[in-house]
Design a protein around this nucleic acid. Sequence first.
DNA 1: GAGTGGTCTAGACCACCAC
DNA 2: TGGTGGTCTAGACCACTCT
Lengths: 263, 263
Amino acid sequence: MTGDGVLSDFVDPASDRAVYKQIADHLRQAIAHGRLVPGDQLPSETQLMAHYQVARMTTRHALRLLQDEGLISAEHGRGVYVRSRRPVRRLASDRFAARHRMDGKAAFLAEAGQIAADAGVDMIRISQSPPPASIADRLNLSDDVPVVIRSRRYLLDGRPVETAVSYIPADIAAGTRVAESDPGPGGIYAWIEEQGHRLQRFTEEVTARMPSPAEVRMLALAPGVPVFQLVRTAYSVEGRPVEVCDTVMAADAYLLSYELPAH
Amino acid sequence: MTGDGVLSDFVDPASDRAVYKQIADHLRQAIAHGRLVPGDQLPSETQLMAHYQVARMTTRHALRLLQDEGLISAEHGRGVYVRSRRPVRRLASDRFAARHRMDGKAAFLAEAGQIAADAGVDMIRISQSPPPASIADRLNLSDDVPVVIRSRRYLLDGRPVETAVSYIPADIAAGTRVAESDPGPGGIYAWIEEQGHRLQRFTEEVTARMPSPAEVRMLALAPGVPVFQLVRTAYSVEGRPVEVCDTVMAADAYLLSYELPAH
DNA sequence: GAGTGGTCTAGACCACCAC
DNA sequence: TGGTGGTCTAGACCACTCT
């Protein structure tokens, strides 16, 4: 339904609060109170203009505000809709535990199989060149030493949700499978261990920010959706960093879950 | 400096790409390439109008785009400036390790002391009422059982960076100090342990999203800055959840760091 | 074709800041 | 006082979607 009793109030043009903010407040409350639920269509700009007796730019300004908050999404030619908070993909901190490498699946596919029918990888690209300085730091390498770079994109139910770029020192990648699209059962980590490098631990550094235009394209992000940037470093039992993985994830698709000891 | 050689290019009104997006692209590149560095003032709207021969709303639209990406911030009456990516506060996953509870400081203050001269807490409020359903779930309680609720806000160098709300079952809070502003040396966890509840582990669930208007106020957030929401549950050695802490953090001020075993 | 959102113009007045 | 960004108007034309 498109706003029957949704727009009960009117705005006060004399108020200190800008008119477009008042309109946004009304709509935000309608969503918060459940008068508008995910999937519902909001009143059209024309209807909002008529109801609030304002110019079109004022209604657009209000809608833009809600879009930036991630509450609604505008669809050209169709209307403006309340965003559905899609079920998130839960990333548990034990997802790289060795037991998950045993069953022949890479971490993403193993987890994804539990919640989505269709999970996949595309845009796999493999190259060899010196890494960015921040990555070289983490690998304890000088940034003029070439490393193997594997980048790819992960899909869930056909929707892109994550891009990942792995950096692997050349001597560790010296086998063969890294140059292939499919590193084989168990993913990169299983493959690295098969080469005789026992993994001991990972560190993950998590930040959140708004996406660049390129990331918006790659992840098909709606306005108002931030991204997680997660940089994971894998260490061998000798304490040597053997891989750095730089991933960018659509934040509306993920919940990161960590387990911390108290001792 | 306000844009000497910054605006070398012109826009193509016949292009498929909207004019305001082209202007945003130019400015974004100027920032990416270091022609504009954090703190620099962008050309004013008037200058942009003259340079690109467009209406004011078009320049504003372009600037709004960059603001939503978190790249710039507009200051009323002063100008538009490139945002400085402030040094982040690093949250290590061992910040709740027992050794940190021994030295008489709560986790936030203990960590903050290492990177900031001035760290503090304000807006402390303590009440007792039934928790939200999602919290009751995590505490294994029915949501009509009252719990002790401690909410507060953390400041770094005078700037608010985090709000936190702790929910503690009434029988565990049955001591005295929880009702006071200061839970005492070591913070809430030290206090809970002094009551005889040994802590074993924590779980942290991390999501990221755009802030609500209330959160924008509480954290003095600039446009284009997302928030982390981190819900931490503390478990005693008996496996009982003894506290849930729901925190919202300015994402531009934090880097979350976790350590994961590979076994 | 009718209705929707997307872009853009050319003005206006206001609030804030620095000089 | 002059320049800055913030709000708002009243139009215009376009692109997309659905029927």
